[in-house]
Design a protein around this nucleic acid. Structure first.
Lengths: 228, 228
DNA sequence: GTTGCACCTTGACTTAAGTCAAACATCAGT
DNA sequence: ACTGATGTTTGACTTAAGTCAAGGTGCAAC
């Protein structure tokens, strides 16, 4: 499939004219990454941003002691590292492929030239950055104002709502990754899943979790209840 | 002073033509807030954004138990609540005046109309949002990957660097607010300041702190050292 | 199948940081 | 200078969550 047609299908670029898509296609580069490979590391120069065509990507940061905080886990057709385009600074976090991944790469300078000519593209990017900001705000709230059970409850409810409200959610990341996403470590996550299971809030199996008590999880997420 | 001239002096709007400033002036509203007054509360509809002309503002969130996480403390000529303009959702946090404060308010819809005509304005907003995203990323890193002494050390070094590298930094917020900014509580902050004082890293007085051992603070901020 | 490795769980222990309560300091307004 | 409100410190205590170490599970490759 040719790059221009692919670009026309990316939600971030929806509403752009065929000419605009062609212009984007002219600067985009398709790239392939294997599982475990890094797109960039924290501190690298911010040379452009990516849109995922297939595969899975985590954006994360490691502490000196090796604890990992995952900022996002992303799939098609999501972009990542957009903010680096506009600050021109180094990347503040690292990004790694969690599976075989194909992306489109947009080089910073060329993208900036395009965007200054195309208000509609700028508005799309503004909407995207604003959305990211909102998600990060929620992450800060969770880390600072909720305990781990509350964060986990909120996360499970999030999965539930993006799962056609079906009560059994398939985990498409490992529990280790999930711990990193929740700002904790695998041991703690394991213990809390066990407690939630005992309290009949959820039913944990290897690769999926059933939500048994939505109200109970909501209360937990809002700090209105504690785990025994 | 008339609104158009004020707008021409706001860094966010630098590079705009006089006509563009006039257009912005036509939609901006000057507003006055007294100490303790809220600009908006978490969950309110996002009806526009603000630029501070004088005074001081905190953007924050409270947990059900009353713990406060401060996201930013802002002064002239900084904008806040920009992201709400582009998401059109409710505000994800609250904003309150910490002193008598004068702001310019830009209503969402009218601002959106202007921006879609003015690529340079869009680029300014993109740079602003990207910068915010970076700051929030660092906040997440601090909360998740550093302990309170590390966060405090990083914050003191930040103050130091924005203070002409003079070793004595004046605290222009209360230690209570500082605790909220660092994601902790006043008691904990007080104890850690005391320990840093004892270890001769800093010298704490009522309204200012002297940095005695920059290297020691840097090590602490990077997790390369622990407080006794 | 059996080996290997990554993932996950569990227990015993440690520790950072929060809670509660009380005393103390600082400062603006009368 | 006095008063009250707000901000700050300190001590004793509790607790959430991390560390370390060991064992279990399950999938993938040979």
């Amino acid at each position: 499939m040719d790059i221009t047609s692919i670009i026309a299908c990316i939600p971030l670029f929806e509403g752009l004219s065929p000419q605009q898509c062609t212009a984007l296609g002219a600067i985009a580069v398709r790239k392939y990454y294997s599982r475990g490979q890094n797109f960039f590391a924290e501190g690298d120069e911010g040379i452009g941003f990516y849109v995922i065509l297939s595969g899975k990507v985590k954006v994360f940061k490691l502490s000196p002691e090796g604890k990992e905080q995952i900022f996002h886990i992303l799939e098609t057709p999501e972009p990542f590292a957009e903010a680096a385009v506009f600050t021109g600074q180094h990347y503040p976090a690292s990004a790694q492929a969690l599976a075989e991944t194909i992306v489109l790469f947009f080089p910073r300078q060329k993208f900036l030239e395009l965007i200054s000519l195309q208000p509609s593209l700028a508005l799309s990017m503004l909407a995207l950055l604003s959305q990211r900001l909102r998600k990060l705000t929620i992450l800060v709230e969770n880390l600072s104002l909720k305990e781990v059970p509350g964060r986990l409850a909120a996360y499970l409810l999030y999965l539930y709502e993006h799962n056609d409200d079906s009560a059994t959610v398939k985990l498409d990341i490992s529990k280790n990754q999930m711990a990193g996403l929740l700002g904790t470590i695998p041991e703690t996550l394991s213990r809390i899943l066990k407690r939630m299971n005992e309290e009949k809030l959820i039913n944990v199996s290897t690769r999926s979790i059933s939500i048994l008590d939505k109200k109970g999880l909501t209360d937990l997420a809002e700090g209105a209840r504690k785990l025994a």
